[in-house]
């Protein structure tokens, strides 16, 4: 069905207009916003049915489902924005089970007064990310909150995907002796975002690494179905994610600082800000823990993919009842790589 254009005599003012409370009120204004912005942008069969839910067929098997909220500040950063991030982040969370992502939902909580031009920019970017990933946004929701009750815009996305038969990838499967691989340089996203924050007035050439990793994961899983753990080191960075896995799996880890790839620009920015790149967020990288015998195969698969050219082996799991993640420093000494205490900087994803 096609709604007659006459339902909204004047199109949304996407240049100077602003979101107001009627855009979330359930009336014509909301219908117009949904029609002219969201349906037009995301354009796919399930969404175009204009129901309160999307109906579609799924293949039989084991399904994964995930959800994530995006509250990043600033909304636009070098290499991405909240829209593309909301797609990549959720696609990646699905993919980290070794699953093939099928579809996404998107919920928008918009603050009254938010420029429609910015909203369009976000929706366009989100739609592009979703098209590029081949994972459609099939259902959504829009809410508008009063001025002062939100911070511009918050987006939540949920995603579902199907796990290929025989694949069991989970954070509790790391075993002593397993190799620890990462798909590329650490800290790019966090530093790109921080470089845009108003109080940190430095310009860097660093782009966020925000990207959908599912195609690389599909190749990895095809090559080595027996991968033990995949996880993307987002908030808290590599350090927090390794600690999560270590405690979930009940193992210790030993890594080498010199083997962790970090771009010189990121290292420089971290130096200035007093940050440790190991704790800075990534949005387009993954950690892979696999049997030692499969490590070289997986490294080769990752390096052959555009998102994994800097893939590296950084260490191994080992038996340790304390579940310490330890690191041999570049100096040759040993240290714990601990959980992040508190926050390095707020809201980077």
């Amino acid at each position: 069905m096609t709604l007659p254009r006459r339902a909204h005599p004047r199109p949304l003012d996407l240049k100077t207009g602003r979101v107001d409370l009627t855009h979330g009120g359930g009336g014509r204004a909301m219908a117009q916003l949904v029609e002219e912005l969201f349906i037009k942008g995301f354009d796919n069969e399930a969404l175009n049915q204009r129901n309160d839910q999307a109906a579609f067929d799924v293949p039989a098997g084991r399904m994964v489902m995930t959800t994530d909220g995006y509250v990043i500040s600033p909304l636009f950063f070098p290499g991405g924005d909240i829209g593309s991030l909301a797609v990549h982040g959720t696609v990646n969370d699905v993919a980290m089970a070794g699953a093939v992502p099928l579809s996404l939902s998107a919920g928008f909580i918009i603050e009254e007064g938010f420029p429609l031009a910015d909203l369009k920019r976000i929706v366009d970017s989100m739609a592009k990310a979703s098209r590029d990933a081949g994972v459609p946004v099939v259902t959504g929701d829009t809410k508008v909150v009063e001025k002062g009750k939100g911070d511009g815009i918050f987006i939540t996305t949920a995603g579902i995907g199907m796990v290929p038969a025989g694949v069991v990838i989970s954070g509790d499967r790391a075993k002593p002796g397993d190799a620890i691989l990462i798909s590329g340089t650490m800290g790019d996203h966090g530093v790109a975002v921080m470089s845009q924050r108003e109080s940190l007035g430095f310009e860097t050439a660093i782009l966020s690494d925000s990207a959908a990793l599912h195609t690389m994961v599909a190749e990895m899983v095809a090559a080595v179905p027996g991968i033990h753990v995949l996880r993307d080191p987002t908030r808290g960075g590599l350090a927090a994610t390794l600690n999560e896995i270590a405690s979930q799996s009940g193992v210790g880890m030993l890594m080498e600082e010199a083997l962790v790839p970090v771009k010189p620009e990121v290292r420089g920015a971290c130096e200035l800000l007093g940050l440790d790149p190991l704790y800075v967020a990534n949005e387009g990288k993954l950690i892979c823990i696999c049997p030692e015998a499969d490590a070289e195969t997986l490294l080769a698969v990752m390096r052959a993919h555009p998102l994994g050219v800097d893939a590296a082996r950084i260490g191994a799991c080992r038996a340790d009842t304390h579940h310490f993640v330890q690191m041999k420093t570049a100096m040759g000494g040993m240290r714990v790589v601990d959980w992040l205490a508190g926050e390095q900087l707020p809201r980077i994803c």
């Binding site: 041999k328 420093t329 570049a330 100096m331 040759g332 000494g333 040993m334 240290r335």
Partner: peptide, 8 residues
């Protein structure tokens, strides 16, 4: 502590 210098 950060560089584990005590080990050296």
């Amino acid at each position: 502590s950060r560089y584990g210098l005590e080990d050296l």
